[in-house]
Design a protein around this nucleic acid. Structure first.
Lengths: 361, 361
DNA sequence: ATGAAAGCGCTAACAG
DNA sequence: CTGTTAGCGCTTTCAT
């Protein structure tokens, strides 16, 4: 059933029927009623595709996240979805799996589908031609959780630098000297050399804070404690195992997300390590489970739902024609001290530690 | 840049350019090369909207889930998204928040956007006219996790009846007599009367199993132990508190999802209840955190990623023209015994229990 | 306030 | 193999 059918049934022109059905222009009440009842009788359903074709607007925003299964993104997406719905927009969600090729493909089809704007958490900020393409296509883009300095677009992130600097300092104050920052981010050589190797903005900011706190405390070679490649449970577990089995294992670990923290927690327990006696653990993202473990896990709470909300609001603002300069919104984090952080174990107990490691419970 | 522009630049007709750009029909290699290079030079980008308009296919499947933030759905959505991507489909994801009005609106816009097919987890199977509308629109529909008997469409669920019957029996065998099934599902009167009051298929199946196991063990008034309305952390907590503070508190709780189990676990701990000594807990869905608590939580593992995968596969099969009769695929569950289930406490210790409750740690 | 006609960018016959 | 011609269903001037 098309506008033409309804028009015919109502005895008016196609244009008039379209005005009623599309809710634009002006129509007399009598005609409106006639068209509406004809539409109902014929079970008319508008074709948004045709509408979008002519108007150029689709009422849809495209979202590309790294991993829908990561509660961090679930929560952010929920924030986006809620704001979008209230503003009358739909959301096309795509998952890049943190793979740049998938991200590029997703952006391409989203633009081809003529979404009105995009929200993307870029998998790597070294490879952003496809993001520039979005700009070129004239659509607004908002970066989610990961800023890319070389892109003049809106971005919403947490204050990663400050958060990580503060938590690192906290650990240092507790006497820790071997503090590991463990992230899914990776480099070609699988080891951390310089900040520029880190290809996601959030992690780079955090590691910068991590290094700064270390430097200020006079800890040498802090960079050697940045561990990479903890992507997926398997690899995270392998990384954690390497850490625990090292000659000088870390006394504290900062997990870059809750999935990593979960694996670290799990393995630590399997190996019989007691938190926080043998190991202090801090987790970026206040995932729900972190409050029910024993001990509960100290976390850096990021306002992740609000990050999503804000990104969506910014995007929709632009869609409605707000022409402000691109803004990088930085939201504050909160350190929630729970119990997985304690003083560093005295050196010399490492012998006993070794024993425990060899006879896991 | 449109096909016409490219055609002009390449010195061919619009149709020929379209054939190259759209990848259909036959073109000579020489012409193809010319068109392609013209397209590249002009930075041509196809308009999927226009394409969909004429072909009637959008290459998109619409998904409506109850709550993206629920790890159950995140995982299922991931399964859907992965299969869809491999088959060259996009996914428009919408969140109903378990509200029927939002679900209806979502379905309407999805159909208006001419998605090729839909995957829906219906919020309530008493209200399904909008789902019938999908059928009427000629698009295939697959039900996710919640079957609706009166709808002749594909559905993919776990074997909820069997799973819940088995776990209830297990608890009964452990000596439990006051076993609560706690769900987000609700009725107008907020109390369970009959199976027909339960408006989601999965919960109804589970409660049926629950009742059957109870009846077989000769437990009276098993229906009185079905507790409703645990939707969201707040209300779940309130429900759990009521349960714990009752004159005869349950000795075992079956949580209908991991969000509910989390709140129950949290509150039980706050009240100083020891699992499984004072309370046995079983959770539907093997959420990641259930394995790291103390004790870890016994769960019914549903193959949730596969539920999503299977739903997507079924849908795409229909899209490719497979015309089998509608199938209800039922996937097996696994009981993962972890440690939160133990023998029922001996009656008479309830006095001590009361004391503990009044002086929570 | 209403109608006629053009056109969005593409695909799909149909010729040649 | 290539070009011509019609639309898809809607919105949008421009008249009336």
């Amino acid at each position: 059933m098309t506008v033409a059918d309804v028009a015919r049934a109502a005895g008016v022109s196609k244009a008039t029927a379209a005005r009623v059905l599309g809710g634009y222009g002006t129509v007399s009440d009598r005609v409106r009623a006639a068209v509406l009842s004809a539409a109902k009788a014929l079970d008319y359903r508008p074709n948004e595709l045709a509408r979008s074709m002519t108007t150029g607007r689709s009422g849809t925003i495209g979202v590309v996240v790294g991993d829908i299964e990561n509660p961090f993104f679930s929560s952010a997406v929920r924030g986006i979805a809620d704001v979008a719905r209230l503003a009358g927009f739909n959301v096309i969600l795509t998952n890049s799996g943190e793979e740049i090729a998938a991200e590029k493909a997703a952006v391409k089809t989203l633009v081809a589908k003529r979404v009105d704007g995009l929200i993307v958490s870029p998998a790597r900020d070294s490879d952003i031609e496809h993001l520039r393409d979005i700009e070129r296509s004239g659509r607004p883009l908002v970066l989610l959780d990961r800023a890319v300095e070389s892109l003049r677009v809106d971005a919403v992130t947490a204050d990663d630098f400050q958060a990580c600097e503060a938590v690192t300092r906290l650990l240092i104050d507790e006497g820790h000297r071997r503090i590991v920052y463990l992230t899914a981010c990776d480099t070609p050589g699988h080891r951390f050399e310089t900040l520029d190797d880190l290809y996601t903005g959030s992690v780079r900011a955090r590691v910068a804070g991590f290094l700064k706190a270390g430097a200020e405390a006079g800890i040498e070679a802090m960079g050697g404690f940045v561990k990479l490649g903890a992507l997926g449970a398997e690899r995270t577990r392998a990384q954690a195992r390497d850490l625990f089995e090292a000659a000088l294992p870390p006394t504290a670990i900062i997990a870059s997300d809750s999935l990593i923290a979960l694996e670290v927690f799990r393995l630590a327990r399997e190996l019989g390590l007691q938190l926080p006696r043998d190991l202090s653990l801090v987790c970026f993202h206040d995932a729900d489970w972190t409050s029910v473990t024993s001990p509960p896990v100290t976390v850096i709470r990021q306002p992740v739902y609000r990050i999503g909300e804000t990104a969506a609001r910014l995007l929709i603002g632009r869609l409605k024609g707000e022409g402000n300069a691109p803004a990088h919104v930085v939201l504050d984090t909160t350190l929630i001290a729970r119990g997985s952080v304690g003083p560093a174990p005295a050196e010399g107990r490492s012998g006993a530690r070794e024993t425990r490691l060899r006879h896991p419970v």
